[in-house]
Amino acid sequence: MAAGGDHGSPDSYRSPLASRYASPEMCFVFSDRYKFRTWRQLWLWLAEAEQTLGLPITDEQIQEMKSNLENIDFKMAAEEEKRLRHDVMAHVHTFGHCCPKAAGIIHLGATSCYVGDNTDLIILRNALDLLLPKLARVISRLADFAKERASLPTLGFTHFQPAQLTTVGKRCCLWIQDLCMDLQNLKRVRDDLRFRGVKGTTGTQASFLQLFEGDDHKVEQLDKMVTEKAGFKRAFIITGQTYTRKVDIEVLSVLASLGASVHKICTDIRLLANLKEMEEPFEKQQIGSSAMPYKRNPMRSERCCSLARHLMTLVMDPLQTASVQWFERTLDDSANRRICLAEAFLTADTILNTLQNISEGLVVYPKVIERRIRQELPFMATENIIMAMVKAGGSRQDCHEKIRVLSQQAASVVKQEGGDNDLIERIQVDAYFSPIHSQLDHLLDPSSFTGRASQQVQRFLEEEVYPLLKPYESVMKVKAELCL
């Protein structure tokens, strides 16, 4: 049975990233139509530049190519590739079939990587351009969430054990800070992308030097003109047959890092959902379990974690691919890159769409948070109580021993009897502590235990987050809708 299948058929496997999760716009960027249309555009740009620099290419040939950029006979191309065992030459023939007058000058002087690699770089750039505003929107939604809850005390956790208090907004800023680093890295790697350009079979530009009869300047002009037509500021000066596969490492490393950030955020949300302090959106008709109707599973956060793990592992592909590119190139890269580049971007696209949807509907339960604080705060307040007693004339050592005994009794009630923490009640009825009984409410005010959390939130948002989001103001209103 021949390899390949009808990918629109229910009898043929289709990647869930495309069929179930990723956005239509990201799927289109990695589609065959987008790819092969870009090949034709690159052939047109090459012909236009070659004509401008004096090669015998007519206006009629150029116009014929322009008129057929979208006229792609995919069936013919597939048949040609089956016959020739070469995808680029299959599309040269297919393009030439609908451009008979231009057929002889299509791909003039070029090698397969002229269309293959340059198209990949265009796709990487455009895919990054799709991700950047999506990530900015996630940051914006979380920034709104953090600002609104900047002063809401909550129990902090280290080692997932109760620690000092923080605020809900401050905790959210930990998430935002990681995503801001990801946004900066995505922008950097996007701006650092260079075009492969017009380089020939081993990167020496020998074929173009021959076409222009040894004119170095025209060869350099050709490279520059096509690079500018493709919208790049610069091209690699040095290439082998391909652009260095280190570029793929750079791009997928940034995406993998984004995956790590999203995994951490969504894990926190899942843990908070278990504590009943916070939940992701839950639709009115949504079913959490087929057997347990009360369940409210954090399905979206779980999906993000599941896909983020996949995204983090994909960076190993370009690392290994770059390491086995012998001399000017081997074909070890080809099949692998067809999979890992598309999957990385479709996965990143999915987790950003999902995280935006989550961040637009996060639900906080202040009463649950308050109750958990009441359970733990008495123990945390013991040092403040000791200091207040010393100020009232008591002995630190005597007070410490009193607190120690009462704390152990209260802990026994919590752990052995399943009761509430009654340390404060014990202190309130103990005559030894009568000098500070009137101060206990103040000493137990949760806001006095959150330090500068709310001020940190305000400063972080104003100095770091809002300036970073400013270039994306025009796209901030787009909502994230999930079908599944």
Rank of each mutant, 00 (worst) to 15 (best):
residue 12 S to Y: 10
residue 14 R to K: 15
residue 20 R to I: 04
residue 21 Y to A: 00
residue 23 S to V: 07
residue 28 F to S: 08
residue 29 V to G: 05
residue 34 Y to L: 06
residue 38 T to H: 05
residue 40 R to S: 00
residue 41 Q to E: 13
residue 46 L to C: 08
residue 48 E to F: 02
residue 57 I to M: 05
residue 57 I to K: 00
residue 63 Q to F: 14
residue 74 F to V: 15
residue 75 K to C: 10
residue 87 D to L: 06
residue 102 A to G: 09
residue 105 I to R: 12
residue 108 L to A: 15
residue 119 T to W: 03
residue 123 I to G: 09
residue 124 L to R: 03
residue 127 A to M: 01
residue 131 L to H: 11
residue 137 R to H: 10
residue 141 R to W: 15
residue 145 F to L: 06
residue 153 P to A: 09
residue 154 T to W: 08
residue 154 T to C: 09
residue 154 T to P: 01
residue 160 F to M: 07
residue 161 Q to A: 05
residue 162 P to I: 06
residue 171 R to T: 01
residue 176 I to T: 09
residue 178 D to T: 06
residue 178 D to Q: 08
residue 179 L to D: 06
residue 181 M to Y: 11
residue 187 K to R: 13
residue 192 D to H: 10
residue 195 F to H: 03
residue 196 R to K: 11
residue 202 T to M: 07
residue 203 G to W: 00
residue 203 G to M: 01
residue 207 S to M: 05
residue 212 F to C: 09
residue 214 G to L: 10
residue 222 L to N: 02
residue 223 D to M: 06
residue 227 T to L: 05
residue 229 K to D: 03
residue 237 I to P: 06
residue 241 Q to I: 00
residue 253 S to G: 13
residue 255 L to K: 03
residue 257 S to R: 06
residue 257 S to G: 10
residue 261 S to N: 01
residue 263 H to I: 06
residue 265 I to H: 08
residue 267 T to S: 13
residue 267 T to P: 02
residue 269 I to N: 02
residue 272 L to V: 12
residue 276 K to A: 05
residue 283 E to C: 13
residue 285 Q to H: 11
residue 286 Q to D: 00
residue 292 M to I: 02
residue 292 M to P: 04
residue 298 P to L: 03
residue 298 P to N: 02
residue 299 M to R: 01
residue 302 E to R: 01
residue 308 A to Y: 04
residue 310 H to P: 03
residue 320 Q to P: 01
residue 328 E to C: 06
residue 333 D to R: 00
residue 333 D to Q: 01
residue 334 S to V: 01
residue 335 A to R: 02
residue 337 R to D: 03
residue 340 C to G: 09
residue 343 E to P: 11
residue 345 F to Q: 05
residue 347 T to A: 14
residue 349 D to Y: 06
residue 349 D to W: 05
residue 354 T to M: 15
residue 362 L to T: 10
residue 365 Y to R: 13
residue 373 I to Q: 01
residue 378 P to V: 09
residue 379 F to S: 04
residue 379 F to E: 02
residue 379 F to Y: 03
residue 380 M to V: 03
residue 385 I to C: 08
residue 389 M to T: 02
residue 391 K to Q: 14
residue 398 D to R: 13
residue 400 H to A: 05
residue 402 K to H: 07
residue 405 V to R: 14
residue 418 G to F: 03
residue 418 G to N: 03
residue 426 R to T: 06
residue 428 Q to A: 09
residue 435 P to D: 08
residue 436 I to W: 04
residue 443 L to H: 00
residue 448 S to K: 15
residue 450 T to M: 06
residue 456 Q to R: 04
residue 462 E to A: 12
